[in-house]
Simulated assay, not measured.
Amino acid sequence: MGVRKKQMAERLKEERKSVAFAKLNNCPTSPRKMRLVADIIRGKKVEDSLNILKFSSKEAARRLDKLVLSAIANWQAKNEDSDVAEAGLFIKEIRVDGGSMLKRLRPAPQGRAHRIRKRSNHVTVVLGQTNNTEVN
């Protein structure tokens, strides 16, 4: 490995240690449906986003609710001495990427068949922390 590549990899590794995130891979929901819910909570405070997800009627909201709770637990594991309510956590980044597709055939008239694509997605939630330190 080259020197610059190694330095960049170590720098990215150090940055990743300070960020709390959670991933959900191969979620059996289409990415389009998951993005509808993800767009609602992007950039909101953690408490507000959990309330929005709790009262949403969409099935993708249940999965995102558990994922946000997992990201909060990951943040608490890194910052044992800090309190979640005082930290001012917010959803810094939420990405929904397409996952693998299950391809199935459905019978069609006159001996033909139509292809059905059962889509899945990968969701990544990154939490950010607002700095509430005031300088007098």
Rank of each mutant, 00 (worst) to 15 (best):
R104I: 13
L36G: 09
K23I: 12
E10V: 06
G98S: 15
Q110G: 11
A73C: 08
K66C: 03
L67N: 04
L105A: 13
R4F: 05
V84S: 09
S100G: 12
G98M: 11
K92P: 03
T133H: 00
F21G: 03
R4N: 14
L64D: 05
A22D: 01
D65E: 10
I40E: 00
S49L: 03
A77C: 04
A71V: 07
L50K: 10
K23Y: 03
P28W: 01
I40A: 00
G43M: 10
K58S: 11
V125E: 01
G43A: 06
R62W: 00
I40M: 06
N131Y: 01
A61R: 04
I91P: 02
E93W: 02
F55M: 10
G43Q: 08
R115I: 14
E93Y: 08
S100V: 11
S18W: 02
V135T: 09
S100P: 07
T130V: 15
V126I: 14
R112D: 03
F21Y: 14
K54V: 03
V68P: 01
S82P: 00
L105W: 12
R104V: 14
E59P: 04
E15T: 09
W75H: 08
V96D: 04
S18A: 11
D48L: 04
Q7T: 02
K33V: 05
K5C: 03
G128C: 12
E47D: 14
G128H: 12
M1S: 12
R16F: 04
N79I: 09
G111N: 11
L127Y: 06
T29L: 08
K58L: 08
P31W: 05
